[in-house]
Design a protein around this nucleic acid. Structure first.
Lengths: 420, 420
DNA sequence: ACATCTTTGTAAGATAACTTTGCAAAGTTT
DNA sequence: AAACTTTGCAAAGTTATCTTACAAAGATGT
C-alpha cells in the first residue's frame, strides 16, 4: 500500500482511466504486500466484486505482471487458483556512489535480487567522471543480467553520498566525496542512453525506502539512520519518504550535538557524525596503527574484527561502542521528539556492530524523549547492511510500476474496438 | 490541494462513487485555493470537460457548498458566470485548551471567521473537568453563532497543550497543564452531545495546519515552531501534517539542546523550551519584580511592553531577544538538516516579538545547516499570533468537507431514478 | 446595422469501468 | 448420489466521464 512517489492523482482530474489504474495498482499492491491468493480472496479483501477482480487480474496477466499459479483448496467448495506476482517481466535497478564503493542491484517485481555488483574504491578522492564511468560499467553488466532473466528495466535510481537537489537533478554537495555541483543524473544518461528513467537521490533516503517493508504497518513511520563515513538517513512518514523542499531532508549527520567537540569534514564543529560516525567509533576503539584502522582491509573485515573483540569482552572496544551508542541515542531522542516514529532503524555500519550499542542507545532515547516509553519508538537493527541503498534504489524504481501498472506495455495489444 | 487527512482512498477500491467524490473535491479545492472562477476556466485548469464541470458544480450547488456569482466578461466571447464557495452552509469549529486560556473559533467554508471566543485563565493548575466545562460553554456559544450565520458545524477539533495520543483519543501528558491521561475528547462529547465529530489534537500541530495556506506551494513543506509557556510545533510535509506513530510528533520543546543548562518542567535538563520558551525570554529580559513578569497583566500586554523596550533600544531587552533567538536558531538548524522545509514559521509568542529575533535566528540557522544557504529555508513570522491553534482546528474540521464534499447532504434530495 | 467570430454553458449520445445477476465448474459433505 | 459451498466468468445494468453538437451572449469587422 505504500507509495513513495504518488504517480496516482498527482494533479488533474480523475477519469475512468485513473479509476482503472487505481484498482490495478490496488490488486498488484495487495499481491506484493500479502503474497499470492485467489481472485475470490482478493475480491473480499479489497471490496471489489469477483468479476471485477477477474477483469483486473486478466489485464495484469496481459501486462506480464502477474501469473496464475497453483490450485489452492479451501475447507469446502471449489478450489481457487492463486494469483501471484510474475518476476520475469520487469526489474528495478538501484545504484550507489560512495567513498568506499560503487554498487548496483537489480530486483524483480517479486522482490528477488536478480543481480548485484560491487566495486571497492580506495577511499581517496576521484573525479566524478571517473567514478561515474565505473558505475556505468556496473550498470551495463546489471542490464545484461536483467535481460538474461527475461525482464526489462523500468528505472534506475542512483544513490549518492551527499546533498542531492531533486528539483535540479544535481548533486549539490558531497562533503566526503569532495564533489560539488555534479550533474550525476545527466552524466549517467549521457553514457548509458537508457530507455528508462534515471533519477538520483540521497543514499540515506534510499536506505530508508529499503527499510519500509511492504505491507508492514509497523514500518509506515520510521526513522532510518544510515552510518557510513558520514551519517545520513531518511524519514518515512505515513508510508511516504519525506524529501523536503529540495530533497535535502535526512541530513542528520550535520545536526550539531556537541558544540564543544571536534571539527567536522563540513567545517562545522560538533556535528553528529563527528561523534557517531564510523570514524568516531574507530578513533575511540583503536590507536592509529591498529589493524581495524587500515583502509586496505575493507570495511566489512574491519567491522568484523571489532565485533570479535567486543564479543571477547575487550573493554576498550566495548567502551567505544557504548560511547558512540550514547551519542546515537542523544540524536535519536531529539528526532523522536520531533517525529514520533514507530521505529528507529539503524542501517549501514550499525547493521554490523549495532547490537553492541543497543543498550546505550535505548537508555539515552528513553531519557531524552518527553513521551512515556519514548513514545513507543523502538530501536531496530537493519539486516540489509551496506546493500540498503542499492536495494532502496531498486525498490523505488519498481514503485513506479506498483503505482501505475499501465506503465508496462501489454504483451498482446488490445485489438481495435475490442473490450477488455 | 492540501489534505491533512486523506479521507479519499483511505483504503479499499475505487468505484464510480469515489471517482465522483474525487472530482467534486477537486473542483471545491480549486475554488478554495484559487478563488472564484467560471466553469469554463475550471474545466481548462483541471483538465475536465466543460460539461463535466457543469455537472460537478451543479451537485456542489445542490449541496450548498458553492454558488454562482457575478458575470465575468472576458476580452471576447460570451461572458462566464463565476462560481465561488458558499460560506453559509457549513462551519468548522476549532478550540484550544491552554494554561493561559480556553478559546474557540468558527470558520466557514470560504475561510471567514464566523465566531471567536476566548476566556483567560489565571495560569494556576485546575482540574480537567473544570476547564472542560468552561470550554464547552464557549463551544455552545460558538454553535449558536454558527447557527445564526445559517450554517451547520461539520466538526470540532480541540487543541490541547500536551501529548495527545491520536490512537486512544486521550491526552497522555500535559506537563504545563499538569494533567495526565485525560480523555478530553470523550469528556467534551459527553457534555456537548454533538451530531458532528469531535477530535483532539496537539495545539502545535493545529498551529501548523493554520500556517499551511491553501494553494500556496511555498507552504507545502513547513516547520512551525509554536511558542507559549512551552515550545511545540508541527511539521507539514508535502502538504500533509506529520503526526507520527501515535500523534506525538512536533514535541520540539523537549529536544535537549543545552545539557549543562536548566531543569525543565518535564524533569529533564536543557530542553529547548528552557532556553527558548516564553519563560526563558522573560527571565533574561527582566528581574522578578518587573511588570512584564506579572501574570495579572495578560500575555499580550506584557509582550507589547517588551516590544516597546526593544524598539526604544533597551540593551537588556535586545540582548535577551538576541540570546533566545540564537537558541531558536540552534534548534531550527537541527530540524532543518533533518527536514529541509521551505519555511520555518514562528508562531505563538514569536508572532509578537519575533521580528527582533530574526537576525540571530537566521545567523544560527545559516551556520548550522549543511546545505548551502540553509537549503533555501527561510524564516517567517506568523501573523496569526495566539489564534493559530483554534484557526488550525477549524481548518482541520473543514478539511473533511474539502476532502469529501458528499459528506454534506443535498438540500434537494435526488428523486428516485432521477439522473444527476 | 448586420453578419461573423469567440467563448460559455448545457444536453444527448458514446465510451468505459464498475456492480449485479446468473450459471457452469469443481470440490466437500451428508 | 444429491445437496451444499465456493470459484471464476459472462451478460446485462448502472454510473460517470468524454465526445459532439448547439444555443446563448457578447466582441469585432464590414
Amino acid at each position: 500500500m505504500s507509495s513513495f512517489d504518488d504517480v496516482q492523482n498527482r494533479f488533474g482530474a480523475a477519469d475512468q482511466g485513473s479509476l482503472r489504474r487505481t484498482n490495478l495498482a490496488l490488486v498488484l499492491g495487495r499481491l506484493r504486500d500479502q503474497g499470492p491468493r485467489s481472485r475470490a480472496r482478493l475480491a473480499t479483501e479489497l471490496g471489489i466484486t469477483r468479476s471485477g477482480v477477474s477483469s483486473l487480474v486478466g489485464e495484469l496477466v496481459e501486462r506480464g505482471l502477474v501469473r496464475t499459479g497453483v490450485v489452492e483448496r479451501g475447507a469446502v467448495g471449489r478450489p481457487g487458483t492463486s494469483v501471484r506476482l510474475d518476476g520475469r517481466s520487469v526489474c528495478g535497478i538501484g545504484a550507489e556512489i560512495n567513498v568506499h564503493h560503487v554498487a548496483t542491484m537489480a530486483m524483480d517485481l517479486s522482490g528477488n535480487v536478480v543481480a548485484e555488483h560491487r566495486l571497492t574504491l580506495d577511499g581517496n578522492r576521484h573525479e566524478a567522471s571517473e567514478v561515474v564511468d565505473r558505475l556505468v560499467e556496473l550498470v551495463s553488466r546489471t542490464e545484461d543480467d536483467v535481460a538474461a532473466h527475461g525482464a526489462a528495466p523500468v528505472g534506475l535510481t542512483v544513490g549518492v553520498a551527499g546533498l542531492v537537489d531533486s528539483t535540479r537533478d544535481m548533486l549539490t554537495l558531497g562533503p566526503n566525496l569532495e564533489w560539488r555541483e555534479v550533474p550525476v543524473g545527466a552524466m549517467i544518461r549521457d553514457r548509458l542512453q537508457p530507455d528508462y528513467p534515471v533519477v538520483i537521490d540521497n543514499e540515506g533516503n534510499l536506505a530508508a525506502i529499503a527499510e519500509t517493508l511492504p505491507g508492514d504497518p509497523g514500518r509506515r513511520d520510521i526513522l532510518v539512520i544510515f552510518g557510513e563515513v558520514g551519517l545520513g538517513g531518511g524519514i518515512v512518514a505515513d508510508g511516504r519518504l519525506l524529501r523536503g523542499r529540495q530533497g535535502y531532508a535526512g541530513e542528520f549527520g550535520h545536526m550539531i550535538v556537541d558544540p564543544q567537540g571536534r571539527r567536522c569534514g563540513c567545517g562545522r564543529i560538533g556535528c553528529w557524525e563527528t561523534v557517531a560516525g564510523l570514524r568516531a567509533l574507530l578513533d575511540a576503539a583503536a590507536d592509529t596503527d591498529d589493524a581495524v584502522r587500515d583502509p586496505a582491509l575493507g570495511l566489512q573485515a574491519r567491522l568484523a574484527e571489532l565485533n570479535r573483540r567486543a564479543d571477547l569482552g575487550d573493554t576498550r572496544t566495548l567502551a567505544a561502542l557504548d560511547q558512540v551508542g550514547g551519542w546515537i541515542g542523544v540524536g535519536a531522542a531529539m528526532l523522536t521528539n520531533a517525529l514520533n516514529p514507530a521505529a528507529i532503524v539503524l542501517s549501514g555500519y550499525f547493521a554490523e556492530v549495532g547490537h553492541h550499542m543497543r543498550g546505550s542507545i535505548e537508555a539515552r532515547l528513553e531519557a531524552g524523549v518527553l513521551a512515556p516509553h519514548a513514545g513507543g519508538t523502538v530501536v531496530e537493527l537493519s539486516t540489509l547492511g551496506f546493500t540498503a541503498a542499492v536495494r532502496g534504489g531498486a525498490t523505488l524504481a519498481l514503485e513506479s510500476v506498483f503505482a501505475d501498472p499501465t506503465r508496462v506495455e501489454r504483451l498482446v495489444p488490445v485489438a481495435q474496438g475490442e473490450s477488455r
